[in-house]
Every structure is written in C-alpha cells, then in structure tokens.
C-alpha cells in the first residue's frame, strides 16, 4: 500500500472516532454515564500530563519542581499564558542554574 493510501486510512479511522461520539449522543443516556462524561477531560488530561512530566533527558527533579510551581500559579490565577510562562521560565532557569 502506498504511503498516501495508508495516510488516508489513518485519516478515515481518526475521523470516524471523532464523529462517533456525536452519532451516539442522540441516544438517551443514563445519569451514571452523564456523570462519567464530566470526568472524561479530568482523567484524560491527568493521563496525558503526568506521564509526560519526567521526560527522557534525566531532568525529572527540575521538571517536577517547575510543574509544581506552575500548578500552584494556575490554581491561583488560571491563566494559560501565565502558567506556560512560569512553567517554562522556571524550567529553563533551573536548567541553567543547576
């Protein structure tokens, strides 16, 4: 199969997954499942965040420190720009300092 055909198949399954939730959501859903949907972003973003924290460059301690400070700032101000500035700023400063 040519790369273009493979890429189009990848696009097809991705699009079907992205659309499937809409197609299913016309049905009546029990309260339990509705409650569970509220937790989808919380658990998925938790699952995307924590494994990416240590990194593969042996800098886990400073990455954890920078992430902890970022979480604190976001908790207090909930501004994404500020969070990214504090997170990357702390990380790069610690990297240079240590």
């Amino acid at each position: 199969m040519t790369p273009v055909a493979t890429i189009l198949l990848m696009a097809g399954v991705t699009y079907l997954l992205r659309l499937a939730g809409f197609l299913l959501s016309g049905r009546r859903v029990a309260p339990f499942w509705l409650r569970s949907l509220r937790f989808v972003p919380i658990s998925v973003f938790g699952a995307l965040t924590i494994p990416a924290l240590p990194g593969q460059s042996g800098e886990a301690p400073i990455r954890f420190a920078a992430a902890a400070l970022t979480a604190l700032v976001l908790w207090r101000f909930s501004s994404p720009w500020l969070g990214i500035l504090v997170g990357m700023g702390t990380f790069w400063s610690l990297r240079l300092a240590l």
Partner: peptide, 27 residues
C-alpha cells in the same frame, strides 16, 4: 516540557473538588 505544562493549564481550571483532584492524579 511545554506539553505537560500546557495540559496542566487545561486541567487545573477543571478541578473543583477533592474527587476531581483524585481522579486526575489517579489516572
């Protein structure tokens, strides 16, 4: 490192209770 930081910026505003925090950390 921008990725965990960006996902933290999306996640933190969603956390409004101890249960939310436990689910995020557990997952």
């Amino acid at each position: 490192f921008v990725f965990p930081v960006a996902f933290l910026a999306l996640l933190i505003p969603l956390i409004r209770s101890r249960l939310d925090l436990a689910v995020a950390a557990g997952a």
